[in-house]
Simulated assay, not measured.
Amino acid sequence: MSDSKRVQAGSFVAFVRSQTFRPRPDLDLLFVAVDIVEVCLMAAWLVQSEDFAAQAGTPNSRGRLRFNASLKSGSRDRWHRYRLTPAELAPPVLERLADRGEL
């Protein structure tokens, strides 16, 4: 388990700099929670940048867009449809690469 108190409580937070973030059809954001003791993935979220821009809200006072998701499998937070288990991660990544002709 991560040593982060937030992860231990079942949530994941990441920030994206609004100053450099430019959503576009060929850009995806991959957020990953890692178990630093077991050295393995706990959960991942693969979000198309245009979806992220539409759902992330406004930047905070530091110009950052906040990604705040639950690690709990039954959660219905705004990002639940993007959540993937480690076993589920590879196929959507490969599909997105194939869609862009990068495979």
Rank of each mutant, 00 (worst) to 15 (best):
R96N: 10
A56K: 04
A53G: 12
R100V: 10
L29Y: 11
G63F: 03
V7E: 15
D99S: 07
A56P: 01
L46V: 08
Q8A: 14
E88M: 05
W79D: 09
R83Q: 13
Y82G: 01
A14T: 06
F21V: 06
P86G: 05
Q55S: 06
A98K: 15
R22Y: 08
P59I: 12
D99K: 07
A56G: 04
S4V: 05
G10M: 11
S2L: 04
T85N: 06
V32N: 06
R100P: 04
S4N: 13
D26Q: 05
D35F: 11
Q19Y: 12
Q55P: 02
Q48D: 14
L27P: 12
S73R: 13
V47A: 06
L89C: 01
R83Y: 04
R24G: 01
L46G: 07
D28F: 15
R6Q: 08
A44H: 00
A69N: 06
P59C: 05
V7Q: 14
A90G: 05
G63I: 04
A87E: 15
G101D: 06
A90D: 12
F21M: 13
F12M: 09
A54L: 14
R78K: 13
T20E: 09
A44I: 00
D35H: 11
A69H: 08
Q55I: 00
D3W: 15
L84W: 02
F52D: 06
P86C: 08
F15M: 00
K5N: 04
A56L: 00
L46M: 05
C40H: 02
K72I: 05
R81W: 08
D51V: 02
F12H: 11
G63E: 08
A87F: 03
V7N: 15
A54D: 10
V16W: 07
F52T: 03
A14H: 09
A33G: 08
Y82H: 06
A44K: 05
A14P: 01
A44D: 03
M1N: 14
R6Y: 09
V7I: 15
S73H: 06
K72T: 03
A90L: 11
G57S: 01
W79C: 02
R6K: 08
A54I: 10
E102Y: 13
D51S: 08
F31C: 08
D3R: 12
L30T: 04
D51W: 09
S2Y: 00
G10D: 07
E95H: 13
R81Y: 12
S4Q: 05
Y82P: 01
A43H: 11
V34R: 12
F12Q: 09
A54S: 11
A87K: 05
G10R: 10
A14L: 00
S75N: 03
R22H: 03
P59L: 14
W45V: 01
P91D: 05
S4T: 06
R81N: 13
F21Y: 09
L97S: 08
A14Y: 03
L46I: 11
L65W: 11
A56N: 06
Q48T: 04
S70F: 01
V93T: 12
R17I: 03
V34D: 08
A44W: 02
R24E: 05
T58P: 13
R83E: 12
S18V: 01
V32F: 07
F31A: 02
S2P: 01
L103P: 12
P23S: 11
T58W: 15
R64W: 10
S49K: 10
F52I: 02
